[in-house]
Write a protein that binds this DNA or RNA. Structure first.
Length: 403
RNA sequence: GCCGGGGUGGGUUAGCGGUUAUGCUAAAGGACUGUGGAUCCUUUGACUCGGGUUCGAAUCCCGACCUCGGCCCCA
């Protein structure tokens, strides 16, 4: 027997219905906010992901050499491909560009709850601007999606530029280590590489929940003013957030505002969304254009999303052996309108009804020699057992009324 | 990469050193060729894999694989 590769999943009908429903709802919000959907290839040149995605992600890549000797990698995330697409084909489009995407990504990691080797990301990018207005819109969009789905979440917003301002004299690799320690809120770790004064200031900063507090520590700067205006805009949007300068993000291309959304009821992998502002375009050989975006961990949302399956109308066509060809003709008409099942097993009338019940059909359309003679069908309501013999037109009318 | 809990038919489960590996459920067929959900009967179907201990292993030991938690990292 051949099993699934590790960290992958099969989606059975009920699960897939839920996922499709969730996908539809998320998609419709992006559409109403004026974002257009795009799609990029499942694999790209390895270089696209090793260039600036950070050390950590490079080690998790599903990378291989193709038959032409090219270094290829399955995509571990979608921001870099979208940026690549922009540079390749859309450099001269009017700005800002607003895109959203939904696709599978691959990372070679140890699977656990909410973490798979093949997983799906929903996300968006606003390319061509990095105003507080753009950042506010992107954050509000993420927050709106969570609210619309009825998912309980906490939104944390950080500002990398303010934090980096305190450690700007250090070499950049050391800065990265410090950011990681801050993300973990590891005070002891910070003390080991920093002087006590800077450590204390960083730690104070992490605990601050308002611009006033921050300005009290580092003074009023252009950057704090900017942060203040972003937060004011978010208040206008009615977004609930928590200022949290310990948010660091794993990907190294983020430059300014960063944010993360955590959800309840997910165990260790509670982050369902992450994003921020970045300058990735010049790195791939494009113009120096700022962008903002986020990615939602679709699989994690499916775990906490409450799905109410709709009560769809299913109709089973049931026939006797001498009426099978008439049943095909009736099925053809019914299939133009409803989910219709026609027996494929050569079963008897009783067994067909039995199956119709298991298939959760609400009606059975019965066709036997009697019905064929009269030019009618028997419509049986499987919920209450009542049945009537009517013309096909009448049958369709009755079914239409129940939808 | 690290630390733990687990893997018995499709699903669920009993057995925890000794007959033909148990029950429930699901599936296919039949009792039943013009009316479903019930009942009864029949059939199909499993000890994750590899080594070791033993007269004998589903059972004990070791390893691998898979899985579930947690760490790391991240969506």
């Amino acid at each position: 027997m051949i099993s699934r590769p590790r960290g992958t999943r099969d989606f059975l009908p009920d699960t897939l219905k839920k996922r499709r429903d969730l996908e539809r709802r998320m998609r419709s919000i992006f559409e109403r906010w004026g974002y257009d959907e795009i799609a990029t290839p499942t694999f790209e040149h390895l270089e696209l992901f090793t260039l600036k995605s950070g050390e950590a992600i490079s080690e998790e890549l599903y990378a291989f050499k193709d038959k032409g000797g090219r270094e290829i990698s399955l995509r571990p995330e979608l921001t870099a491909p979208v940026v690549r697409m922009y540079i390749n084909e859309m450099k001269n489009a009017p700005k800002p560009l607003k895109f959203y995407y939904f696709g599978n990504c691959f990372r070679y990691e140890r699977p656990q709850r909410g973490r798979f080797r093949e997983f799906w990301q929903f996300g968006c990018e606003v390319i061509g601007t990095q105003t507080p207005e753009a950042e506010a819109e992107v954050i509000a969009l993420a927050s709106t999606i969570m609210d619309d789905l009825g998912v309980k979440t906490a939104l944390h917003i950080g500002d990398l530029e303010i934090v980096r301002g305190l450690i700007k004299d250090l070499p950049s690799d050391k800065q990265a280590v410090i950011m990681r320690l801050m993300d973990k809120k590891d005070e002891d770790g910070l003390r080991e590489i920093l002087d006590p004064d800077t450590t204390a200031r960083l730690f104070d900063l992490m605990g601050m929940r308002s611009c006033d507090e921050i300005e009290g520590l580092i003074g009023k700067t252009a950057r704090t003013k900017r942060l203040r205006s972003l937060l004011n805009l978010l208040d206008r949007y009615g977004v609930l957030y928590r200022l949290d300068l310990s948010v660091a993000r794993g990907l190294e291309y983020y430059t300014g505002i960063v944010f993360e959304i955590y959800a309840e009821g997910l165990g260790a992998e509670s982050q369902v969304c992450g994003g921020g502002s970045y300058r990735l375009i010049p790195l791939f050989g494009g113009p120096d254009i700022p962008s903002t975006g986020f990615a939602i961990g679709f699989d994690r949302i499916t775990e906490i999303y409450k799905f109410k399956p709709e009560n769809e109308l299913r109709v089973a066509v049931v026939s006797t052996d001498d009426s099978r060809s008439e049943a095909i003709e009736v099925s053809k008409i019914l299939r133009g309108r409803y989910k219709t099942y026609l027996d494929l097993m050569g079963r008897g009338l009783k067994a067909q009804l039995n199956f119709a019940d298991k298939w959760k059909a609400r009606y059975a359309v019965i066709i036997g020699s009697k019905e064929v003679l009269e030019g009618k069908v028997t419509l049986k309501n499987l919920e209450n057992g009542k049945q009537q013999t009517v013309t096909l037109e009448e049958c369709l009318e009755i079914l239409d009324q129940t939808v």
